[in-house]
Design a protein around this nucleic acid. Structure first.
Lengths: 220, 220
DNA sequence: AAGTAATTTTAGATAAGTCTAAAAATTGTT
DNA sequence: AACAATTTTTAGACTTATCTAAAATTACTT
């Protein structure tokens, strides 16, 4: 149906629309896709002709309904494959991204549905990101950045914002995994670092870390 | 490492070298790849420059050691994914080919090895074709065409030569599956059809069928 | 062995996706 | 509002993989 390149652009636009609700700029897309602005313009025109995006020269792009549906389908496959790799093939959460980038383009609706069933209809991928269902609906959750919790508040670790190998390895090393409870013991205003309690131990984490970790706040 | 197209050519050459030991002709490759002879010439030159094939103008091609290794790796992945689809995702043996054609190009050695392990190191794919191991070694078996058995002889059904949907559906309909014993009750010389006994029932099959079914003869 | 038929290669063209460099439009600044 | 800086688009070129049509080579046939 759509080329690998087209699917990757749609996915990128989908992700960027969260940040730039007023339209995704050519430069932002170019950076996300690690390509040049001129290439983006070319591709965006093509996507526009196929009614996958709404595009007005110099004004950025938006996904159309059709484009959004396609993007979500690719994301669904990406996340299901990540679950497969971690749960069934002994991959760790920092190893799965590049392979899922390949697997997400395999075309077969039956394959996606059977994989979903085989995995027991998982709701989240190994990084805590929600997996859309077959109709493209995401489970919405009240997650927030750890950095935005108040002193004394606690939350359950539910996802990462940065899923780079480096960050995930840092988390592994410090035994921070999804599902764990984290409590803010003390906020250091000077460098915005946090002293947190996790696994019954105190741990000091930098602003960089707390800005990349999602938690679901615990009502208290 | 290699493009999708390059891998498909290598695979096709590998298969054709069984039939044309003296070198695979441009036309034969063109037919197998469903493309034009001129396209084949172009690609074969490219593969030759990469030392994946040995090529002399007008003389056909042979895989080099490197080309053969690459082709076998692709075939290994194809067959492992077929096993996965049938054993884990409820696909039937006539539905898996096209999806495996896509999955066979996913690049990750760890993925292949873990998949192999997850599936319990299967020796054959759902059509009875042997799965090469990680070093590229095929299990060799003394299979032969059902058509070549003598009257009175029997064999175990171990594979298909034609794995088209149509043929596989015919087999399903007649309850001919891998592992079943088949005995030649009578050969009809006029049209080369066979009367066989399978599942304790007599069945008349045409030459077309018997020439596309592999059996391992039972010593008697 | 010479001529015809078939196969294979070459030459030039096309499409997708990318690039660089230059032109056009928008945005920011005073 | 005018100029500068930034962003975006256009124009033209390149690569990969393909095609058609013509030329070259090999194979077949008598």
């Amino acid at each position: 149906m759509f080329s690998l390149s087209e699917e990757n652009y749609l996915k990128a636009i989908f992700h960027l629309e969260r940040k730039y609700a007023g339209g995704v700029s050519t430069n932002a897309l170019a950076e996300e896709m690690e390509t040049k602005a001129s290439s983006v313009t070319d591709m965006v025109k093509k996507l526009s002709e196929k009614d996958l995006v709404k595009y007005r020269k110099y004004q950025g792009v938006h996904l159309s309904e059709k484009g959004k549906r396609t993007a979500i389908e690719v994301i669904r496959k990406h996340r299901l494959w990540e679950v497969f790799l971690v749960e069934k093939l002994n991959f760790s959460w920092d190893e799965v991204h590049d392979i899922a980038e390949q697997l997400e383009h395999i075309k077969s609706e039956k394959l996606t549905d059977e994989l979903d069933k085989f995995l027991g209809h998982p709701k989240r991928d190994p990084h805590g990101d929600p997996i859309p269902d077959g109709d493209g609906n995401f489970r919405i959750s009240n997650k927030m950045l750890l950095a935005d919790l108040e002193e004394g508040q606690a939350g359950i670790c539910v996802g990462v914002k940065d899923s780079s190998t480096e960050f995930l390895r840092y988390l592994d090393k410090n035994e921070i995994t999804l599902g764990k409870a984290i409590k803010i013991v003390q906020r250091e205003e000077y460098d915005e670092s946090l002293l947190i309690k996790i696994n019954d131990k105190d741990l000091r984490i930098s602003k960089t870390i707390s800005k990349n970790l999602f938690v679901k706040p615990i009502e208290s």
